[in-house]
Amino acid sequence: MSKIRVVHYINQFFGQIGGEEKADHKPEAREGLVGPGMAFQASFKDKAEIVGTVICGDSYFNENIEAATEELLKMIEEFKPDLFIAGPAFNAGRYGMACGSIAASVKEKLGIPVLTGMYKENPGADSFKSKVYIVSTRDSAAGMRDAIKLMAPLALKLALGEPIGTADEEGYIPTGIRVNLFEEKRGSERAVEMLLKKLKGEEYTTEFPMPDFDRVEPSPAVKDITKAKIALVTSGGIVPKGNPDRIESSSASKYAKYDIEGVEDLTAEEYETAHGGYDPVYANQDADRVLPVDVLREYEKEGKIGKLHRYFYTTTGNGTSVANSKKFAISIAKDLVADGVDAVILTST
């Protein structure tokens, strides 16, 4: 049997083109394998061959989803692949969105099996888990070996059309698709067993986990915006120069609150970004590009808004866990309510 032809998608970082300063790198195709492709190839042995690698910058993809997808699809198709692998993206949000999005498009448009991998909190996981198989990985590239150990065999199974086991068995994030199967014990027995375990306070596994729809109802609109007190909050990491509270450049463990009484404009001399997940040049030149204090001051004077709240709140959203973000925001919200803030503008990079 001839080898399975594989095309691999990676970002500018794993493509060894560069870091954030190259995140706007346009789609590019290369013959053979690049970067993490080497470990996949080693794991495939002679069953499959990575015939081509397509590379795209994370910002370019996410800012031009349609155009980037179209360009990449063309490049991928030219390699005549039997199988498409994207990533793994770990907890890199833009990379995860790109991997999920391009994998879903390849599956739909080229009709071949696809696989990607990422950390369960990556926004790409929630967005694409029902469309493509996403192997659950650790949150950083330190988990590359473990990820490939799960991804490579699952990819081969998909390419060969072999039956795919459950999410637990194969290590992918549950897709929400149910499969009929025969159990040895009938339902009533299993239900009673579960109930007994529950009553004894023992561990048991439900057969029907409730989906987690964590949605918040929209708050009522602001009645009169010209009287409203508006606060600025950002995950873009804007801080006074020198980052006095040492907010981490990624995986933040804290947020900070800064007084902007009397500040008309965020200047390069006094403000910068602490965020390590995007090219900081533009925010360092003029932090208003992320936290628009200048325009809101102007609007305050013109009476277009009531008041710009005296403090802004900031953290870095780069790889920061959902649990931490939630904790920060609960505490920020408490402050805002106590200070009588009517509405919030939250900016993200």
Partner: peptide, 28 residues
């Protein structure tokens, strides 16, 4: 963060570039 502030009853507008992420997270 958008959701927790909104849960406290304050309307939030999320200004962001990657709209699909904001939608997945649950900004209104």
């Amino acid at each position: 963060m958008v959701k927790e502030i909104e849960r406290a009853g304050i309307p939030v507008v999320h200004i962001c570039t990657v709209v699909p992420i904001s939608q997945t997270v649950g900004a209104n």
